[in-house]
Computed example of a mutant assay.
Amino acid sequence: MNTTLPRQTIDVPLGARSYPVWIGRGLLDDHARWRAMLRGKHAMVISNRTVAPLYLERVAQGLDGLHWSSFLLDDGEAHKSFANVGLALDALATLGATRDACVIALGGGVVGDLAGYTAACWMRGIDFIQMPTTLLSMVDSSVGGKTGVNLPAGKNLVGAFHQPRAVVADIGTLDSLPAREYRCGMAEVIKGAAIGDAGFFAWLEQHADALVARDETALVQAIATKVRYKAGVVSRDETEQGERALLNLGHTFGHALETAGHYTALLHGEGVSVGMLLAARLSERLGMSAHADTQRLEKLLKAIGLPITVPSGFEPEHLLALMRLDKKTIAGTLRLILWRGIGHAEIVSGVNEADVLAVLREATAAR
């Protein structure tokens, strides 16, 4: 393990609301760095019952002298709910949190989304800091200010844009990350390259084995490259009026798969993996991209160990119905993120549902 790698700082430039993303080993223990981002005397750490026993004490040492408490979720996407937001808000009330309080999100994407939404709701918006502990949350959900919760009807249908004060990405937390969760994070790294950086995609192909082995030099480069790309997109389109929607390549398919599986059959990154491949196949069907690009994507996903097939028991018609509820759907017509090949994604409105259904039927028939 390389413990001498320099830490990296990537700024998300949003004027007065700009913030740093710190990437490196040992950052949770760098209390002086992140404690300086807290402006008041109250703090609440939101985490889950898997992560908290591993890392909460290290964060707590940096909160010495403050009035703080913790709120713990059960682990899993199913717990990103309104019910838990209500309980977290009650916990802030019990703490006596004032307008200068700070919520600290210690965990993966579920914790970060729910903590950020809780912070956005309390007194119409208080500070929060992201401390992502999964690769997926480091490279995606912790950066950009998207927060939210799920409904039975679909994923992330309720939420708010609420930017953090800072992102503390301590890669040491990845040492305890299960292989399946690690691979999910790599799906988001691949997605960023597939959307807008053909050179980075080629680099990932060349370093797939090193990334699977969690080589720290390759890993830090992959995280920093993906975060730098996303920071640029967010700075140009914070509230997803245009370019930022490209970051959802594969998500309309993927969210439908997650919802159909009741958030247990597929993890988010696994849904994104299968969803990206379905989006590539649809692009190919529509004459937008070449089969060779689809093959390269499939090969890279397989090399990382990510799923590329729709799980058994999922029906094409049901998946299409769930896709109609996607937030990108406009005036009752599907608006999908497709591509012209590796590194060239685009927003496509008015996609013919018959073509989508054909791709879904081919995918389910091939199981």
Rank of each mutant, 00 (worst) to 15 (best):
L157I: 08
V168A: 01
G96Q: 10
A265F: 01
L249S: 02
K302N: 08
R25C: 09
Y19R: 07
E346Y: 02
P53M: 10
A224D: 08
E205L: 09
E240I: 09
F201T: 10
G109I: 08
G250P: 10
K80I: 11
Y117C: 00
M288C: 04
V310Q: 02
R7I: 04
G192R: 00
L157R: 03
H79N: 14
R35I: 10
D127V: 10
H79C: 02
Q241A: 11
V143G: 07
D355P: 03
T333W: 00
L174C: 09
Q221A: 14
V234E: 08
H31E: 02
V103F: 09
T133V: 07
V212T: 14
D90A: 14
L325V: 02
R33E: 06
A60S: 13
S349R: 13
F253P: 00
W339T: 06
L151T: 15
P152M: 08
C102I: 04
V111N: 01
A78G: 00
A166E: 04
Q8S: 13
A78E: 14
V220R: 15
G192S: 14
A187I: 07
Y229H: 13
V356C: 07
R367I: 12
R25L: 12
H207P: 02
G172I: 05
A187S: 15
A331D: 15
A198L: 05
A83S: 14
H268F: 02
F253R: 00
A354H: 14
R183S: 06
G86C: 14
A160R: 13
P311W: 01
D11E: 15
L219P: 07
T333K: 15
G96W: 10
A202M: 04
E270G: 03
H255I: 02
G275Y: 08
G332A: 10
A321H: 10
A290S: 14
S142Y: 10
Y117R: 02
R35F: 07
A91R: 13
I129F: 09
R49F: 00
Q241F: 01
G145S: 11
E240T: 10
A365H: 12
A224K: 05
T4M: 08
Q206T: 15
V348G: 00
L87D: 14
M131P: 09
S312G: 15
